[in-house]
Design a protein around this nucleic acid. Sequence first.
DNA 1: CCGAATCCCATGAGATACTG
DNA 2: CAGTATCTCATGGGATTCGG
Lengths: 135, 135
Amino acid sequence: MTSRHGRVPGGARGDLFDPDCPTRRLLDRIGTKWTSMAVKVLAEASPGELRFAELRRRMPGVSQKMLSVTLRALARDGLVHRRVEPTVPPAVFYRLTTLGLSLDAPLAAVRAWAEEHMAEVDRANRGYSEPVADD
Amino acid sequence: MTSRHGRVPGGARGDLFDPDCPTRRLLDRIGTKWTSMAVKVLAEASPGELRFAELRRRMPGVSQKMLSVTLRALARDGLVHRRVEPTVPPAVFYRLTTLGLSLDAPLAAVRAWAEEHMAEVDRANRGYSEPVADD
DNA sequence: CCGAATCCCATGAGATACTG
DNA sequence: CAGTATCTCATGGGATTCGG
């Protein structure tokens, strides 16, 4: 999401701004529709492994393409380990690496906040800003 | 980011999947390029207020459009409070609401993870998966 | 069974210009 | 000063199809 538009169109010179903010880079990755869910599901299964199809079953709505893309990205980032069992129809197993597991903690914090407060956000959106005195 | 493609093209019927997962809804919002930075900047200034221009100065690279859009979204979500001082050139002040402030904690966890571990992610991307024995 | 390739649209977001 | 409006383009991501 971050460097999405390092576009330098028309007459503008580039050098957008520091592309090195780690927070933004991370949010770009976990903000990608399926990443956080994959991490969550894999973390719940950890230290066990999950096969592609099993992962897919646990992530309702994901397409095989997006699961594939997501897992590849996670593997490239060193968050997920991929193990191929060379059977006749090859079986592929995924598990979080130590690094990936460590990411689950902050993600869990985000999840917790969301579960606690998204109702408030919804109320705010509906104009429910009534007798809070503050805010 | 989440309901982005509730598209139902060609011959596919809709009912994508549960659009109610609060985590994904939240990630959709904070994943939006400037949101988390705005929350961070406002949290640092809290309980003080910041004017539009001052916010912009503290968020290098943001365009006035995107800052505007971001702040409106945050206000709609009840995370930011907007105060208009009806002076001649009107002055507008922003601050986090209590809800917004509470979001800064999980975001800080994410930031901390990113600052600690993004270097490892970069190494993984460069193929630096050498003598880790695991992973 | 696992995934790569192709196609294709809607959304995110920058640049620019205009208003009270 | 603090926005809003318009234009444009690249990217995210779903559907579908092909490969090993």
